[in-house]
Design a protein around this nucleic acid. Structure first.
Lengths: 230, 230
DNA sequence: ACAAAAGTGTTAATCTTACACCCATGT
DNA sequence: ACATGGGTGTAAGATTAACACTTTTGT
């Protein structure tokens, strides 16, 4: 069998982080090539013999010095033959989340500059990356309602109010505080710690922790985890 | 920039059809190559300049002479470097449905033989295709509950009882006939026709039709379509 | 004492589930 | 008249949605 394929395979990562009560996306400023100075997603070509997952993790490390806390495949873009102006590139994109304690970036080549951008204030993006981010945003919204991925955006111990603000900011809607807490706690996957976080003002708040173990048990038996609001 | 990539890109399609009250998967018997006589999914390498979607449609036409009624990307397999024993191949897989009036297969090269298999009685499959089918089956199950894709497996006009059996067979569970009908009709996306289908025995049954228009309107405003049962 | 955020329950409305008998036809 | 599958309603239970005051701290 003869195959003369010249199509290239790349991976790109859409990494979400949560700081200042806002969802952010990780972007890289291209310092080389014809797209110099444009912002783009972390990504690059897959090496021979490398798996897709490894390629993404390598790029994340190389371009931003970051390790993510959650990652899953998002979509493969290959229906616009000219999405990369140089030649035909198919991009397998990944959706990733980082815990807000691990947000520090350190691009280790000086070919790039990595930076967090609030998801609603993105600069112009190279290639079709705007479209990719949009898709990722929708995935994040939907996923949040049926899987406990919000916890991968928060520190291990967090305030209930932060969790709530996280949901508000991702889902872009108001949430009833009492109903939210009631429902969240009803699944038994969040536990109180004995610690309190001092607030700038107001009553001190208990810190909570996500119990992954409990969630696993829950999802085995019932698959009934669902957090959605009107 | 130098890129010496030797990884190949393939597409594979998991096509579901519904006959004899059972979900079937379309398979191809390899008549050439080292995997001769093994059953596999429809698929092949992407040509230079070809989009992914076009590649899948071309393969479906070439290998089975079929046009599908619904298609979406499923997943890209590339984390097992040896999934193809010959060389590194990344496969972008597609999930497809054919209307049960369009099931006729006509492989137009004699390199292959196309055949429908009941999803629970599959032969040994080549490569990692068993895993792919499994993933597709799960997607079909989940998708059925929040999108009206069941209608792409039935003729334009269908019996309510067929729709119900379709859901039973895909979701692998019993369904209360009254509650199912009530809920389905409550969305207003299914309309009665004036026609009756003569039954082998028993009371003649009305034929129904899916109103895509209505569904679009519904999903614009509320996104509240959900068909799930315990 | 007041400002600021945390914490907490009840009720009405809606949706879901469970369940059994009559209907229209062909033989 | 009987066998076969089609067609229909109701009531109890569960879930969701709406809603406002008290608590604890710092200033």
């Amino acid at each position: 069998m003869k195959i003369e394929q010249t199509i290239k395979i790349a991976v790109d990562a859409i990494v979400f982080g949560y700081t200042n009560q806002t969802i952010h996306v990780l972007l890289i400023k291209q310092k080389l090539g014809q797209l110099k100075n444009q912002w783009a997603l972390v990504g690059g070509f897959v090496k021979n013999g490398e798996t897709l997952t490894k390629a993404v993790k390598r790029e994340l490390q190389e371009e931003a010095g970051i390790e993510v806390d959650y990652m899953e495949q998002l979509y493969t873009f290959g229906d616009d033959v000219n999405r990369d102006p140089r030649f035909q590139v198919i991009s397998v994109t990944y959706f990733a989340l980082v815990n807000s304690t691990n947000l520090t970036l350190t691009a280790d080549t000086d070919a790039e500059e990595a930076q967090w951008f609030p998801v609603n204030e993105l600069p112009e993006l190279a290639y079709d990356h705007k479209e990719i981010v949009q898709l990722a945003k929708e995935r994040l919204q939907r996923k949040l309602t049926y899987q406990p991925i919000g916890f991968d955006l928060l520190p291990t111990k967090f305030l209930f109010s932060d969790l709530e603000r996280l949901y508000c900011s991702i889902l872009e809607q108001e949430i009833d505080r009492r109903n939210f807490r009631k429902k969240m706690l009803s699944y038994g996957v969040i536990e109180e710690t004995e610690e309190y976080a001092p607030q700038k003002s107001g009553r001190p708040a208990k810190l909570f922790r996500f119990n992954k173990q409990k969630y696993m048990e829950l999802s085995m038996e019932s698959s009934g985890y669902k957090i959605d609001f009107v």
